[in-house]
Design a protein around this nucleic acid. Structure first.
Length: 920
RNA sequence: GCGAAAGUGGCGGAACUGGUAGACGCGCUGGAUUUAGGUUCCAGUGGGUAACCCCGUGAGGGUUCGAGUCCCUCCUUUCGCACCA
């Protein structure tokens, strides 16, 4: 239903100077209803593969259907929509799909709270959130919608998992999980609070259970190398991924020992083999076989090991907890000196990284130092650190000469103190040693060698003895995908008492997850569901039991973008259409996914590529990581340490005469509340903003405009109601400007003939604004500066009052530019204003305008003049002025003369078209 | 702890390639319109100073004719750390 021109789009253009009746008031709800109805009726954003046109795949990370859209979603999808609409106007065949990351823990938590099956909760959330998305006017192809909890989707997880199993990419081994002994259930990390189960408060135990892993480590070198060839990704994301994959070159070496009459080896990996003569102990993980052996005859040690096993597996916590250890009483032999080295159990040694054992060199490693100091272990210096940063870097990079002098050596009197046990030296002294490269001392035949040469020599000797070799170690671990939970994709395996683990045959896929179950917190409900559990062994036909573990939800999100491109194919996981659309040209989502999701998707795509399913290997060509949305937090202490949080809309902020914040009070009682700064919107801090209410109050366009204007896409965005108000004010201003113009009669925007100076200036501003906005939206992908440029131009245009036919033509062209430039951001208003300006073609099908080079030409340029680098004056010169002419004009300027009076001019620097610097 | 990033007016930000610091907006101040509030419009708004000018981009050094931008040291804040998604 159209409120303004019921038949405009079918009856052709009005004649020149036809009086126009346009609603004088901007009513966003009516405008948005009309534009959305128009797009829906035409299925304007459903796209087909068309090899004759350049394709563009613009994708935002699909949401978890948590119940309601939050402002982070709105920001994410608005960025994607602006890019989509801009590129569509540039002539691309643009795919922008949407779906739902529908499996996951929150649905189970909701089920426990409300007794509603996760499936129902999820589908209701999807329905609600879909309406919210539609109200924001995103140019989405809803024909390709998918939810990962649908069997039509997850059957292909299962299918590919079985293929991976065949190829050895998927395999079974044991892994450690958090076990709640009261609820008899496995907990996620976020369900463990201070080492206790979130519901039961029971001390959480670690359990080893069989799980399935995907061999992502086999792809580690390729995943790392390819990062160098991904210019469309932010540097920091590539750096984070590279660190995560963590390639490190070093030496794997072994400490021989005798146990129960047998010769064995204790292996460690180190990047600092040059410090090997400084080893004074070896630490092993609590789970290490040597620790287990020693504990058999040592109850104290056994107790300590149990304590370690209770501890966290989380890297962040391990790194920050107190380093504790206990001697095993066992000794191994130093692989070079043959001297006995004590073996300790350390709570900071991870079984899952490397060999589960580390060599301790207290003099040159911070953690080892802390450990040695605490337990009175010897500290032996074996590296003389280089004095200067430059020299240190040179040593590290292997470019230092071996005869480079080492300045500022440790004084000999400091040295001997260290060799006899607990050191009596200052930590400041010692700190200059650790983590540094230098020249070896106290290392026998290796004395005098520098870092790289020392490692070479030591590795060669170890290799000759069979005690070690150079080795490349990766930090990346294989991807454990088993989850002992209900609401996920079933792992398609069957346990047969006779045949062990048997894959579900391909023709029996999908293994459908029963949707009616309600988890109650005591383990996976699938284990109590015989209709799911009981089955026949596909191999022997005997009674068997179905696997009840489900897959990590990162599996679902590792290939959904390929499925969007192969939507609704019930015969295959993906098809030729995926090759038309992929890679995703622009991927947009939160920085919090910088490592895991993006790395898993890169891995999964490579696996599909290697199986010949898709041509693409690297799934995301360009990546934009949008920042978070923050809001103020207001609170009040309510005695007994309890804190009550108040929503910012209920708070009145007091400011001083300059507008600086001086305090805040609660609207309802007028009493002060405390401002705790700005944080991400959350329920617990009561600082959320409901997108639906905002759309009702201001309209989707104002909300979109505010979010794009407030901050660059990658930065955090601070919510402000005043800011949305400002965006709304701008929309009314835009509306009024077009209204005033068109009610005076329509004119053509084709400008020809002689223009006055003012007309030329306005026209130049219009075209240069268009040039800037095109660059900002396209190459730079920043929207706040594009909007600012349009605002600035509108300030110019509002001062232009020329009502001559020529002046009105200039204004018509300018307003058409404004509406077009803003239309990716405020598409509803754009749609209606475009018609108001007399156009019969819908704006979404109109191509993006091109600036006219002739309109951009300037006759004169303002040149800034500095004297000794300080701004002193300004002159206007002809655009064609030579460097010599600019210099003369600058020196002739009266103000400049005053500043250089009596001083000889030493130098004059001329930056063409911009600036002159006179040095006196 | 390790890894990654960011610090510019009262606030969000702009300055893209080393070249006029503070565009644009919010807030604030004064004025016009209005019965009033709101809306709208006009003017002003980094600090110091009577003024000329001086000082100013987290702190301190450096390179340069010229530094928010490049280099070094330090401080603060935010994000990630493998079962939240």
């Amino acid at each position: 239903m159209s409120l303004w021109y019921p038949s405009r789009l079918s009856t052709g253009p009005p004649g020149p100077n036809t009086p126009i009746t346009m609603q004088s008031q901007y009513e966003p709800s009516a405008v948005e209803a009309e534009a959305q109805a128009f797009w829906t009726d035409r299925q304007a954003f459903a796209v087909k593969e068309d090899p004759s046109r350049p394709s563009y795949y613009c994708l935002c990370m699909f949401p978890y259907p948590s119940g309601r859209l939050h402002m982070g979603h709105v920001r994410n999808y608005t960025i994607g929509d602006v890019i989509t609409r801009f590129l569509r106007m540039q002539g691309y065949n643009v795919l922008q799909p949407m779906g739902w990351d529908a499996f996951g823990l929150p649905a189970e938590n909701a089920a426990m709270k409300n007794g509603v099956p996760p499936a129902r909760w999820t589908y209701e959330n999807i329905a609600y959130m879909k309406r919210q998305l539609q109200s924001l006017g995103f140019a989405l192809d809803w024909d390709r919608e998918l939810a990962t909890c649908q069997p039509e989707y997850y059957r292909w997880n299962q299918w590919l998992f079985l293929k991976m199993l065949e190829k050895g990419i998927a395999y079974r081994k044991t892994g450690i999980v958090n076990w709640d002994p009261i609820d008899q259930t496995v907990l996620a990390n976020e369900q463990v609070i201070d080492g206790r189960g979130w519901r039961t408060g029971a001390l959480v135990e670690k359990r080893e259970i069989p799980m399935y892993y995907l061999r992502i480590t086999a792809y580690a070198p390729d995943l790392l190398d390819a990062l160098n060839d991904m210019p469309g990704w932010p540097e920091r994301v590539r750096a984070m991924q590279a660190n995560w994959i963590g390639r490190s070159e070093g030496v794997r070496l072994s400490f021989p020992y005798e146990l129960q009459g047998e010769q064995r080896l204790l292996s460690v990996f180190t990047t600092r083999a040059d410090t090997i003569m400084g080893v004074t102990f070896v630490a092993v993980a609590a789970e290490h076989p040597l620790a287990t052996y020693a504990a058999q005859s040592n109850p104290q040690l056994a107790a300590f090991i149990e304590e370690c096993k209770l501890g966290t597996e989380q890297e962040a916590e391990i790194a920050q907890m107190e380093k504790k250890g206990m001697p095993t009483g066992l000794f191994v032999k130093h692989p070079i000196s043959g001297e006995p080295v004590p073996v300790w159990v350390g709570n900071y040694v991870l079984m899952t990284y490397g060999e589960g054992a580390v060599m301790g060199v207290p003099a040159h490693d911070e953690r080892d130092f802390a450990f040695a100091l605490k337990y009175g272990l010897p500290i032996k210096q074996v590296i003389e650190p280089a004095a200067s940063n430059a020299h240190r870097r040179a040593l590290r990079d292997g470019v230092a000469q071996s005869n480079d002098t080492v300045r500022d050596p440790i004084r000999p009197e400091d040295r001997h103190v260290l060799e006899g046990g607990i050191a009596k030296f200052s930590v400041a002294e010692w700190q200059s040693w650790y983590g540094e490269y230098g020249v070896l001392i106290n290392s026998g035949k290796y004395d005098g060698l520098e870092h790289a040469a020392a490692i070479d020599a030591i590795a060669a000797d170890l290799s000759a003895k069979g005690y070690g070799e150079k080795h490349v170690q990766w930090r990346l671990r294989d991807w454990g995908i088993s989850r002992q939970r209900y609401w996920g994709c079933p792992i398609p395996l069957i346990h047969c008492p006779k045949c062990d683990v048997v894959p579900v045959p391909e023709q029996d896929l999908p293994v459908v997850l029963p949707e009616g179950l309600v988890p109650d917190g005591s383990g996976n409900p699938l284990n109590k569901t015989p209709s799911f559990l009981d089955c026949k062994c596909p191999r022997c036909g005997g009674p068997a039991r179905r696997e009840t573990d489900t897959m990590d939800t990162f599996v679902d999100s590792s290939w959904y973008f390929l499925r969007f491109a192969s939507a609704k194919n019930d015969k295959a996981m993906v098809d030729e259409r995926a090759n038309y659309w992929s890679p995703v040209n622009q991927y947009i989502g939160g920085i919090e996914h910088a490592i895991l999701h993006l790395l898993y998707a890169r891995f999964w795509t490579r696996v599909m590529h290697d199986m010949g399913l898709v041509k693409v290997k690297e799934p995301f060509q360009n990546l934009l990581t949008q920042g978070m949305v923050l809001n103020d937090i207001y609170s009040r202490r309510t005695g007994e340490g309890a804190i009550e949080y108040f929503n910012p809309v209920d708070v009145n902020v007091q400011v001083d005469a300059k507008g600086a914040r001086v305090g805040a009070t609660l609207n309802s009682d007028g009493k002060p509340v405390e401002w705790e700064g700005m944080r991400t919107m959350s329920k617990s801090k009561n600082n959320g903003v409901d997108p639906t209410k905002l759309v009702e109050q201001y309209g989707a366009d104002s909300v979109r405009l505010f979010m794009m204007f407030k901050a660059p896409p990658e930065d955090t965005l601070e919510w402000s109601d005043d800011g949305v108000e400002g965006a709304s004010r701008f929309m009314r201003r835009l509306w009024r400007m077009v209204h005033e113009h068109v009610t005076a009669g329509l004119v053509s925007g084709k400008v020809s003939g002689e223009l006055t100076d003012e007309q030329r200036n306005v026209r130049r501003a219009a075209h240069s604004t268009l040039q800037k906005v095109t660059d900002d939206l396209g190459r730079r992908r920043v929207f706040n500066t594009a909007i600012a440029a349009v605002m600035e131009f509108m300030n110019t245009l509002s001062k232009f009052e020329d009502q001559t036919p020529q002046g009105r033509a200039v204004r018509q062209e300018a307003l058409e530019f404004v509406v077009q430039m803003l239309s990716p951001i405020v598409p509803h208003a754009g749609h209606v204003l475009w018609q108001a300006l007399g156009h019969t073609d819908p704006l979404i099908d109109h191509s993006w305008p091109q600036p006219d080079a002739a309109a951009l030409v300037r006759d004169s340029i303002d040149v800034v003049i500095q004297v000794n680098g300080k701004l002193r004056s300004q002159v206007t010169v002809e655009a064609s002025a030579t460097e010599q002419q600019i210099r003369e004009a600058a020196l002739a300027d009266a103000t400049v003369q005053k500043w250089i009076e009596g001083k000889p001019v030493r130098k004059v620097i001329v930056v063409k078209g911009k600036l002159v610097n006179v040095v006196v």
